[in-house]
Structures are given as C-alpha cells and as structure tokens.
C-alpha cells in the first residue's frame, strides 16, 4: 500500500554522486531548480533535460526505480495539466463545450508545466536517492549556517528534519497497521462520497496522532537522557569534507547554469511559446 512509495528514500549504490559531499548536492539541486525556472523555451529545456539524464546516468539509480517514485505525484501532475489546459487563454481553439475551451496554447502550456514538474521532482529525488538522510540534514545544517546570524535556529531545524526522516517509515508502517486493524472491524476506506471517506479515516487518524505523541514524548526522554542540549558544544562524528570530485561538480553545475542563463537571455524570443519561431531563429545562426 503506502509502503510502495520510493520517492524521497535513499537508494543504496556506490556512484560518483553518492560519494559527493551533501553540500555539493544541495547547492547543485538549487542550481538545477533555478535553471528550470529561468528557461522558458524548448531548447533550454532540452539542455536541462540532458543535464538531468547525465545525473541519472552517473548516480546509478535504475530509471525504473525513479519512475516508480513518480507514481506519488500522479494526481498533482494530472491536476496541474487540467488547470493549464482549461485556464490558458489562447487563439487557436481546438475544442469548445459551453464554458470549457481547450486551445493549442493551453495544451502546450500543460505539457510545459507537466514536464517542468516531472524534471523538478526527478531532480530533487536524485538528491534524496543518493544522499543518506543523515548526511542530507548535516549538509543542510552547514549550507544554512549563515542564517544563524539572523537568529534562525539552524541546528534545531536540521535535528527536526533528521528525526522526521527517521520516523516517517515507522509512522507509515503504523498507519498501515491501524488501517488493517480498522478494516478488520468492518471499516470501509474505498466507497462513499468524499466527505464520507474523509470521515471514515477518523478511526485511523486518531490512533495515529495518539501514537505519534507517545513516540515524541518517549524520544524526548531518550534524547535528554543521552545528554542532548542543543547544538552548543556538540562535536561531529562525521564532519563534512570536500573532495576533488566536488570541485569538478561545482565547475560543471556553474558552467551549466551559465549556459542556461546565456541562452535564456540570448534566445529570449518575442513570443516565447512559439516554438516554430524559435526554431527559425536558431537556424539563422
């Protein structure tokens, strides 16, 4: 059931990307996300796509496994597409029924948004597939360190994230167990109107909340008894260290970002959605 979701989980493998410093990967992911929002035309997208494929190739996570993770965002994807399809105004009307209109621009927009979303999620999940959660939180703590000077509780945020990551699988299992237990008492999670279905989940949610509070309580005690007192005077068991491959990665990602920015400015078309016009402008060079 819920346990099939692979999104956001660590995939055990030994690759260049796996071995990179988490900070490199976090900054790399930010760079990649930024690049997706910079580009507005299909050629720049193609480069972003090629960059993504390169990362997938390097990280040795099977494509099949990555696709399985995409199942989790199917609904968001469909909703995004439907919204873009029906709410984009355009001239080339393809289909009309009462107030509903589908235009060529709408379809194009929907395709754009969907591919951007997919690339975004795949990009981020490469980070989570290749970085152990503990490493990831260490990296985040370090990347966010400057924020400490404006009183952001960086260590606490990182600690909360790492605890959340540790407990997600446990709570998922717990949800699964409670659902089964209520099924055994004749619960019905599949039929009925949406309101009714939400109501049917109360017998799952209440015990889940109770269990989470109990766990949180016990975890606090366990942490306290092991002398935890925040980030002050804490030493690191695994301090972060940059290697040569990180330097190479930084050079690659900033070169990539440079190319994207350059192309975005240079190719900035009058009509960004008109791919034909774009194709023409490229040919002219």
């Amino acid at each position: 059931m819920i346990r099939d979701i692979t999104l956001g989980q660590y995939y055990f493998a030994d690759s260049t990307i796996h071995r990179m410093d988490p900070r490199t990967k976090i900054i790399g992911t930010f760079v990649y996300i930024a690049s997706l929002f910079i580009c507005k035309n299909i050629y720049v997208y193609a480069i972003a796509f090629a960059f993504l494929m390169l990362c997938i190739f390097l990280c040795k996570v099977p494509i099949k496994y990555i696709c399985r993770g995409m199942k989790a965002i199917t609904y968001i994807l469909i909703i995004t597409m439907i919204f873009n399809m029906f709410f984009t105004r355009g001239e080339t009307v393809l289909w009309r029924w009462k107030a509903l209109v589908i235009t060529l621009e709408g379809i194009r927009n929907a395709a754009f948004m969907a591919s951007r979303l997919i690339m975004l999620v795949v990009g981020c999940s490469i980070m989570t597939f290749t970085t152990m959660p503990s490493n990831l939180t260490d990296g985040l703590e370090s990347v966010m360190h400057p924020l400490k000077y404006i009183k952001v509780p960086v260590h606490e945020i990182a600690m909360m994230m790492s605890i959340a990551l540790r407990f997600i699988p446990i709570l998922m299992e717990e949800t699964d167990k409670i659902m089964k237990a209520q099924l055994a008492r004749g619960a019905d999670f599949e039929n009925g109107s949406i309101v009714k279905r939400v109501k049917n989940y109360i017998p799952v949610l209440v015990p889940l909340f109770v269990a989470s509070f109990r766990r949180a309580n016990e975890l606090t005690l366990a942490m306290e008894s092991r002398c935890y007192r925040g980030g002050e005077n804490r030493t690191r068991m695994k301090p972060l260290k940059y290697h040569k491959r990180d330097a190479a990665a930084y050079i690659t990602m900033f070169a990539y970002l440079g190319i994207i920015i350059f192309l975005a400015i240079y190719l900035s078309p009058k009509d960004s959605t008109d791919a034909a016009a774009l194709a023409g402008s490229i040919n002219m060079q």
């Binding site: 152990m132 959660p133 503990s134 790492s162 605890i163 990551l165 540790r166 446990i170 109990r214 766990r215 016990e218 975890l219 005690l221 366990a222 942490m223 092991r226 002398c227 935890y228 007192r229 005077n233 804490r234 030493t235 690191r236 068991m237 695994k238 301090p239």
Partner: peptide, 28 residues
C-alpha cells in the same frame, strides 16, 4: 527504555551510537 523504536535517534546504527558522545563534545 522499553520501546526500541522510540529511543533510536540516528538514521544509521553507528550514528545513533555516536549521538551521546557528540553531545558530550568528545573529539572526532
């Protein structure tokens, strides 16, 4: 404590064992 799940903080066994010493400020 009693419940084995609710007292492990680390996401990897060795990191959990290192949690206490880290708090005590022990050298790497």
């Amino acid at each position: 404590f009693q419940n084995p799940d609710n007292q492990i903080i680390g996401q990897v066994v060795e990191e959990d064992v290192g949690f206490g010493p880290e708090n005590l400020g022990i050298e790497h």
